[in-house]
Amino acid sequence: MGKDIRRLEIITERFSNIGSVPVLKDENLYHTTRNAIEYLQSRVSKKVVFKIESDLPLDTPARINVPLFDWVIENICKNAVDAMDGRGSITLHLRRVRTRTAWYRRGTPPRQVAIDITDTGKGIPKNKLESVFMPGFTTKKRGWGLGLALAKRIIENYHEGKLFVKWSEVGRGTTFRLVLNQ
């Protein structure tokens, strides 16, 4: 019952953050990501293997709102679990990303980090790659198709980052890239 109460508190906090401008803080990216995965790992099939890899120092910060960030990670990973029919692997790879040269023209480029979330699921057909972020898009029998649309909004509007499909191949899997500022 204690876990259920904590879960409801998390959901309440997430929804209250959606209705207001969330506060972004410098948070340890590796530890925050690991905590989100540990929470999720106990709630999905034991046949799903989670891995976190990092090319970054383990104390690398990112500007995030933890409850909303957790929601994004949870949503992408739950979709991956569904795409793998409850068995396979999900790898989260933390890395630095290069900033586009356009930033250099405007001044100091922002420092950015990325999390690549790769699954061994069904993959997304090329003609559906743009649709996955549209409200109402779903491949599931149940659901409203709001998860990825909301995740994209959280990252792009609230965190001033990017969320996109980096790679997908039908029958092999998908990689979502989440880019955050430091």
Rank of each mutant, 00 (worst) to 15 (best):
M1A: 13
G2R: 14
K3F: 13
L8A: 15
I10E: 14
I10D: 07
I11N: 04
E13R: 10
R14N: 08
F15T: 12
S16Y: 09
N17R: 11
I18E: 12
G19F: 12
G19L: 15
P22M: 06
P22E: 06
P22S: 08
V23R: 09
L24D: 03
K25V: 12
E27Y: 03
N28K: 07
N28T: 08
L29F: 13
L29P: 00
Y30M: 04
Y30K: 02
H31D: 15
H31T: 14
T32C: 09
E38K: 12
E38Q: 13
L40V: 02
Q41S: 15
R43T: 11
V44Q: 04
V44S: 01
V48A: 05
V48K: 00
F50P: 02
E53N: 15
S54V: 03
T60N: 04
A62Y: 03
P67H: 05
P67Q: 10
L68T: 00
L68I: 05
L68K: 00
L68E: 01
D70T: 07
V72I: 13
I73T: 02
E74D: 15
N75R: 10
N79D: 13
D82L: 12
A83L: 10
A83R: 08
M84L: 07
G86S: 08
G86E: 08
I90F: 05
T91R: 11
L92M: 13
H93T: 10
H93D: 05
R95G: 06
V97Q: 07
R98C: 03
R98K: 12
R100S: 14
T101G: 05
A102G: 06
W103A: 11
Y104P: 00
Y104L: 11
R105C: 10
R106F: 13
R106K: 15
R106A: 14
G107L: 04
G107D: 08
T108F: 04
P110I: 08
P110C: 08
R111N: 09
V113S: 02
V113M: 04
I115T: 02
I115N: 00
T118I: 08
T120S: 13
G121R: 00
G121C: 03
K122L: 11
G123D: 08
K126F: 14
L129R: 15
E130R: 13
F137G: 01
F137E: 08
T139N: 12
T139E: 15
K141M: 11
R142M: 14
R142I: 12
W144C: 04
L146G: 02
G147D: 09
G147M: 07
L148H: 01
L148P: 00
L148N: 01
L148W: 01
L150H: 04
K152D: 00
R153N: 09
I154H: 02
I154K: 01
E156S: 09
Y158L: 09
Y158R: 09
H159I: 03
K162V: 03
F164E: 10
F164N: 04
F164T: 05
F164R: 07
F164D: 02
K166N: 11
W167I: 01
S168C: 06
S168L: 03
S168I: 04
E169T: 12
E169M: 10
G171T: 06
R172N: 14
R172S: 13
G173V: 06
T174G: 00
R177T: 10
L178A: 02
L178W: 02
Q182W: 02
